[in-house]
Simulated scan of single mutants.
Amino acid sequence: MAGRRRWATEEILDAAAELLRTSDADTFSVRKLAAVLGTDSSSLYRHFRSKTELLRAVADRVLLAAVDGYRAEGDWKLRITALALRMRDAFGGQPQLAEVWGRYASSGTGSRLVMEEVLRALRDSGLPDEEIPLRYHRLAILIAALIASEAGAATVTPEEREQGMELFRVAVLGADPERFPSLAHFARDVRPLGVDRAAAFEEILAAQLTRIEAEAHAARPPA
């Protein structure tokens, strides 16, 4: 009798990414993945020691795709912005994986390439070395949160989106002006969270980079 097929690591990751397109990190399991591949869980644990390690590897491939073809061009702010937008687009094509990345992060080559470029750009900003790890950490949290939020919105069905918009209109436009005076005042101009997210992403990121630029300027010794 022929033995079970031996799956290569990349084939396992391909199957895991496809399974995550129709599920999420909570319902995903190594057992389900093994069933898709027609094998047993123990054969997959030869490649990955745990579910978390497998999920991190899947997310890391998205980061690798984001940095593929990236060129460090322009000043440090343009470089970080370009890289963040490439990451947003990469996870936008696989929105379920954005949740995985936001929760489990990554420690693979893709992650290290992103970290290297962001840290290098922050050094070019003029920040003192002792300030860079903290600024990097805050920037990483911001970018991960923005990407996960935007990707999460992309998984909403048209029916769910329309239902949410209707509930928003009822809640906001119908707000009691005595109990919610500010909300009633701005009701016609307040936008739902699902609207104009791309522009909001860039604006929020730009504000953070401007803050870092101001800190770098303040840290420079007087001429």
Rank of each mutant, 00 (worst) to 15 (best):
S107Q: 11
A2C: 10
F168N: 01
A223R: 14
H185A: 15
A35W: 07
A34I: 04
R21Y: 06
L122V: 05
A207C: 12
M1D: 09
A66Q: 02
E159Q: 15
E117L: 11
G102V: 00
G194V: 06
A57L: 05
A198Q: 12
T109E: 14
G92C: 07
R188Y: 06
E130Q: 14
A34M: 08
E215L: 13
M165C: 10
L122Q: 01
R56C: 02
T22E: 14
D40V: 14
E116F: 15
R31V: 11
R46W: 12
D89G: 14
Y45N: 08
P158A: 11
Q96Y: 03
K77N: 12
A218F: 06
E131V: 10
R5T: 13
L193Y: 09
A8C: 10
A121P: 04
D196L: 07
R191I: 06
L19H: 03
D68N: 13
F201D: 00
T22W: 10
D60S: 05
H47T: 15
F28R: 04
V172Q: 06
D24S: 13
T22S: 13
F180S: 02
L13Q: 01
A35E: 15
A82V: 08
D68P: 06
A8I: 11
P177Q: 08
T9R: 15
A59H: 01
E150K: 08
F48T: 05
P192A: 09
A8T: 12
S41A: 15
V118I: 15
R169F: 03
E213H: 08
S107E: 12
S41W: 05
L83H: 01
V172C: 05
A72Q: 14
D26Q: 14
E11L: 05
T210Q: 10
L146N: 00
P177A: 10
I143H: 01
D26C: 12
L183R: 03
R191D: 07
G108L: 00
R4T: 10
Q94N: 11
A16T: 01
E213Y: 03
I143S: 00
